[in-house]
Computed example of a mutant assay.
Amino acid sequence: MKRLDALDAARFLAFCGMVLVNFRIAAEVAPGTDWASVLIDALEGRAAALFVVLAGIGIGLSRISAGLLLRRAAFLFVIGLINMTIFDADILHFYALYFVVGAAFLTASKRGLWLGALGILILAVFANLIFNYDQGWDWETLVYTDLWSLPGFFCNALFNGWHPILPWAAFLLIGMAIGRSDLQTLCIQHRLIMWGFGAAVLALFPQMLTSDPKLVVYLGTESIPPGPFYIMAGTGTACMVIGLLLKLWPMIERSGIATFLTAPGRQTLTLYMAHILIGMGLLEDLGLLNGSLRAPQIAMYALFFCVLSSLFAVLWFSKFKHGPLETVMRRLTEHTKA
């Protein structure tokens, strides 16, 4: 079970990265060159990618049926739609759509999963060549103006939203392929670290080959728009983090901090909703979602929220087996025998 503990810890780290990024978006923090801005810039697009890769690994490690996966997708889609009325950069409804794609590949071989991820990348490239990525966006306010119309929602979900299926679903399939490997072995862990590091570094070079502003953006490693080298960089970073945690997990266990990483990693659905409803809600009540905060301030607030989340999760699991929202999802989506 050690490998699963390490994956739970990776999930919590991904959650912490998403909290930092999302709090900055919500608080309309101006760009800067201070340590917090540099940290959050590095995490933007990477933390969420790690989150999706880990979801794929979880599916790859499990024997989940297509029916259960689709029922969980339906639950997450509804929760995500509700969440979008508060925070339109929600990832849960996208997560649900990735699960639909994943259900179609449950019986695929490891090679089939990699080919599926490649096919999604190719479709995303053609979509960017054919369609207007800026359609529906007001980039000055980061508002998708046509989100709640059917054509706008479809375009946002498939092509140009915060985490569109094309190409983000590739992360899930890549994770499913990784989950088919023996993650307990040092050989696999070393491959994840080395290949992940290599992919993350190599992805930085294509943008240096052109001076065309449009090509620089698309050949870059930014998550908006998500080009093929962003997927390469996001996958590489995720593999490196996962490999390092798997390799270092025995030492982390001996340090005594393992529980504070694994407990919140097992209820990230609950904590994700909490960081929006409670974390952002408190900022709104204090009148701080107006660009008045600087990056170091929002980073300290986000890190404090993550620490409190960890403490809450440890206390919760001393009494209960699953997180609050995780329990609701299980009861609504799993068939229990009488």
Rank of each mutant, 00 (worst) to 15 (best):
86 I>A: 15
128 N>W: 01
89 A>D: 08
8 D>C: 06
123 L>V: 11
254 R>D: 13
200 A>R: 06
294 R>H: 14
297 Q>H: 07
33 T>F: 15
257 I>A: 07
326 E>P: 15
158 L>Q: 14
168 W>G: 01
147 L>R: 06
181 S>M: 15
303 L>I: 05
253 E>F: 09
78 V>P: 07
281 G>E: 09
165 I>C: 03
265 G>F: 00
121 L>T: 05
154 F>W: 11
103 A>P: 02
128 N>F: 05
82 I>C: 13
326 E>S: 10
61 L>D: 12
232 M>K: 09
218 Y>S: 03
324 P>I: 00
272 Y>A: 04
104 A>L: 09
251 M>I: 12
197 F>Y: 11
253 E>M: 10
145 T>D: 05
324 P>L: 03
59 I>M: 11
23 F>E: 00
91 I>R: 07
98 Y>G: 14
272 Y>H: 10
34 D>A: 03
131 F>Y: 01
53 V>M: 02
214 K>A: 14
142 L>E: 13
116 G>W: 08
41 D>N: 12
310 S>I: 00
260 F>Y: 08
230 Y>T: 07
237 T>P: 14
324 P>R: 00
64 I>E: 11
149 S>P: 01
252 I>T: 08
254 R>P: 06
70 L>E: 12
269 L>E: 02
182 D>G: 09
337 K>N: 08
238 A>E: 09
95 Y>G: 09
261 L>P: 04
126 F>D: 13
53 V>S: 02
236 G>H: 12
334 E>I: 04
7 L>I: 03
101 V>Y: 06
259 T>Y: 02
209 L>F: 08
219 L>Y: 13
262 T>Q: 01
179 G>I: 02
